[in-house]
Simulated scan of single mutants.
Amino acid sequence: MLTSERKALILRVLGRDGRLVAKPFSQELGVSEDTIRRDLRELAAEGLLQRVHGGALPASPATAAFGVREGRATAQKVRLARVAARLIQPGQIVFLDGGTTNVQLARGLPADLRATIVTHSPSIAVELAGHPGVEVELVGGRLFKHSIVAVGAAAAEAIARVRVDLFFMGATGLHPETGVTTGDPEEAAIKRLIARQSAETVVLATRDKLGAASPYAILPLAEVGAVVVEPDLPQEALAPLRAAGVRVIEAG
């Protein structure tokens, strides 16, 4: 089997099974485990999978630049955002993470909602600037350009002084083995800190994020209160969330 054929098979297996274990896969193909590990390294370098101990998981496609992601799956994001907006109660203090789906959430808040929104995303703050009943607390720091959010020591210090009722977390992957993940270690640390300051964490997840993994862990699935997902997804895609005790909210 040619290298290109082997790599294509690896990606098909990941798409079908949601994971690949190097040793039995190499035995099945009659090649060395080192050969498969080299294939996995090369595919990981291309961003096509996420390597883990002993094998690989599907890579999240939700790691493109903010401007690119903004134009993807807009209808699905609007649907998720509309359902998520109903979770916010009047008078609550809510932290809105950065990300294109949360931008849609900010746009979709009811005009009569009275609440406080804390965010480290200038994009979110701009969307809420004209909302008549929402007070906006903007957290500053070093701008992480990929996600258009503030990170670093200044952001962490400000976040540590806030307690919020609800945190809408952005993420690039949710997988039963790796939990909730993202593509940058500093951003992961900030998200983890916000979750610690929040009574409940909610993730809005388009279908491409379910069963996918990125390099840096934020939280185990069990520490997420709820995940808002698209309707009519296969139950096998949602089973790991439910098994971890996560409330699954389908955006019907």
Rank of each mutant, 00 (worst) to 15 (best):
D165S: 05
L193I: 04
F144H: 15
V149T: 15
K191L: 11
L143V: 12
T172G: 10
A199V: 09
A158G: 02
S147V: 14
A199M: 12
G170Q: 06
S147K: 14
M169A: 15
E200D: 15
V139C: 08
G152E: 05
G140W: 10
F167Q: 05
G170S: 14
H175S: 06
T178F: 09
T181F: 01
A171M: 11
L174S: 01
G183E: 11
E177A: 11
A153N: 13
E177H: 10
V203S: 04
L143Q: 09
L143N: 10
T172H: 07
G141C: 08
R142K: 12
V202Y: 01
A199K: 13
V202S: 04
V149K: 00
F167K: 03
A199P: 09
R207T: 15
V164N: 07
K191V: 08
A150S: 14
L174E: 03
V180R: 00
F144C: 03
A188K: 00
L143F: 07
M169I: 08
R207I: 05
L204T: 01
G173C: 07
G179P: 08
E157K: 13
R161M: 12
V149Y: 00
L174P: 01
A155F: 05
S147A: 15
E187I: 05
R163S: 13
A154W: 12
L193N: 04
V162P: 01
V164G: 01
A188N: 02
V202A: 02
R192T: 10
R161A: 12
F168K: 03
G152S: 09
V149D: 06
D184R: 03
A189S: 13
A171P: 06
E186R: 11
A154P: 07
Q197N: 15
T178C: 11
D165M: 02
G170P: 01
G140D: 13
A154I: 12
A171C: 15
G173N: 05
E186T: 12
E187Y: 06
L166C: 07
V180Q: 01
H175I: 06
E187R: 07
A195R: 01
A171F: 10
L174G: 00
G141N: 03
V202L: 06
A158C: 10
D184F: 04
G141D: 07
V202D: 00
T172D: 08
A150Q: 04
L204M: 15
K191D: 15
P185E: 11
E157F: 10
R161F: 04
A160H: 07
L193A: 08
G140S: 11
F144D: 09
A188I: 06
A156I: 10
L174N: 02
R196S: 15
H175R: 05
I148P: 02
E157R: 14
P176H: 02
L166T: 03
I148C: 09
E177S: 09
E157W: 10
A199Y: 07
T172E: 09
P176V: 05
A156G: 10
G152I: 07
V164W: 04
D165P: 01
G170K: 00
V162M: 15
F168R: 02
G173I: 05
H175G: 02
L166K: 04
G183F: 09
R192C: 10
I190E: 00
T181N: 06
T178G: 07
I159Y: 05
V162S: 13
P185K: 08
A189F: 08
A189K: 13
E157P: 03
E157L: 12
T201W: 02
I159F: 06
G179C: 09
A154R: 13
T201Q: 08
E186S: 11
A150D: 04
R142E: 14
I190V: 15
G170M: 04
